[in-house]
């Protein structure tokens, strides 16, 4: 792997990612890997949701594959995908120069704020399923939203003390703009001069078609409903388990429980894409997922990670 050349513009999708990784690594973040579960956004990664709770300082950055079944367009829409990548940065407490660090990251991927029009436009963030909200902006570059910038105020109903600063980049959209590509499937994924040049479409077009069909037409809804109920039940079971195991070790299982909440959330998204959840039921499903997240957070708050570091 060659290191990114910061002097020239990026030439491919992975170059944009590598430069962001490099920038945030130099800015002091732990570069994590994606969470190994299906999530709708990088925020669901426990590195954001759970780690933003409690007093312990934290700084992490990672790419998170995100799934939005309803956004599938069989790979035909130039901008919409049911599977895409988010770049997520989470720093607690939010440093006073977070905006500057962010703007430096844009410079790192070749967007010079003196040649572009970079703006912070009010956009308050809220996640009903996570019981979380924050204030911040969507960042516009030449009229296009390239990132979401949020100061978390509450997560799972808990006031954030200290406050985490969260940045989310929609990687495909951002890279398409930097690279001047009109259709996501045409975007070079690796260096176009490589012996085997690959486009985004080479890698994902067929997957988008297959998943679009499955998401919209084929997924077994009876089974999905059952899985939702199973995940919900398992989550409840884990959070209400005895605080000590058979050997007398005090271990609360907040993270396994949270996995089940994530699962339930994704199952809800799949059911939604199948069009089998009515408007009134929707609110109820969201409430149920939020209740699970809340219980996981309650448990997490009793674990050592929610205390000041020793």
């Amino acid at each position: 792997m060659t290191s990114p050349r910061n002097d020239a513009k990026p030439r491919c999708f992975q170059d944009v990612i590598l430069r962001l990784q490099d920038h945030w690594a130099k800015s002091g973040c732990a570069i994590l890997q994606p969470y190994d579960m299906e999530v709708g956004a990088g925020t669901f990664h426990p590195a954001t949701t759970l780690r933003s709770l409690g007093p312990r300082p934290w700084a992490a950055a990672y790419v998170q594959p995100s799934r939005r079944p309803t956004d599938g367009r069989y790979g035909e829409n130039p901008n919409r995908l049911q599977h895409y990548y988010q770049y997520q940065v989470i720093i607690k407490p939010s440093p006073p120069n977070l905006q500057d660090l962010y703007l430096d990251s844009l410079r790192a991927i070749g967007l010079d704020p003196l040649a572009h029009d970079v703006r912070f436009v009010e956009d308050d963030w809220e996640s009903p399923t996570l019981g979380a909200w924050g204030l911040g902006w969507e960042v516009w570059c030449d009229g296009m939203e390239v990132s979401q910038f949020t100061y978390f105020q509450q997560v799972a109903g808990y006031d954030c003390h200290p406050v985490s600063g969260e940045l989310t980049y929609g990687l495909e959209r951002l890279a398409m703009y930097v690279l001047g590509v009109e259709h996501v499937m045409d975007m070079p994924f690796n260096d176009p001069d490589s012996p085997i040049p690959l486009t985004y479409g080479d890698i994902f077009r067929q997957a988008e078609q297959e998943y679009s069909r499955w998401n919209f037409d084929t997924a077994d809804t009876a089974m999905l409903f059952q899985h939702f109920a199973d995940a919900e039940a398992e989550c409840e079971r884990i959070v209400s388990a005895a605080p000590e195991d058979a050997a007398g070790r005090a271990i609360l299982m907040a993270q396994p429980a949270y996995d089940q909440a994530i699962k339930a959330s994704h199952l809800f998204n799949l059911l939604d894409a199948r069009g089998v959840i009515s408007v009134t039921e929707r609110a109820d499903y969201i409430r149920r997922v939020r209740a699970l997240t809340k219980k996981c957070a309650d448990l997490f708050m009793q674990t050592p990670l929610a205390e000041i570091a020793p």
Partner: peptide, 25 residues
Amino acid sequence: VTVANIEATDDGETILAGNQRVLAA
């Protein structure tokens, strides 16, 4: 008419092109 917040080095050509692109989408 879009209103930029900067006197860009290229008289706003890049900015306008970007905005036009978003609008087209």
